[in-house]
Computed example of a mutant assay.
Amino acid sequence: MKNVFLTLLFLGFCFSLSAQNDPKVGDELVIKAQNGTSYNHIKFPKLNMLVKRGKLANYKSVHGNTVVIDEVVTDKNDNTYVVLKKKDGSKFFGFLSKVKANYEKSIASGEMAPQM
Rank of each mutant, 00 (worst) to 15 (best):
E71A: 00
V82W: 02
N77F: 12
Q34W: 02
K55R: 14
L8G: 04
H41S: 12
T66H: 06
S61N: 12
F92C: 11
F44K: 10
P114E: 07
Y59H: 09
S18V: 11
S106P: 06
K98R: 13
V99I: 15
G54T: 06
K52I: 07
F44G: 12
D75M: 05
V83Q: 01
T80P: 00
N102C: 07
Y59S: 06
S90T: 15
F15Q: 08
A101M: 08
I31R: 00
T80I: 10
K86W: 00
N3K: 11
D75G: 09
A33R: 15
G36Y: 10
M112P: 04
K32F: 02
V68R: 08
D88C: 04
S106H: 03
C14E: 09
L84Q: 01
F10A: 14
L11R: 03
D27N: 11
H41M: 08
D27Q: 05
A19H: 06
Q20F: 12
V67R: 00
V72R: 01
N79H: 14
D78V: 09
F95C: 03
I69F: 00
A19T: 11
G89I: 05
L96V: 10
V30C: 03
T80N: 02
G12N: 11
D27L: 00
M116V: 11
L47D: 06
F44P: 15
N102F: 09
A57C: 02
L9F: 01
I69V: 10
E104Y: 15
F10H: 03
N79P: 02
N77V: 07
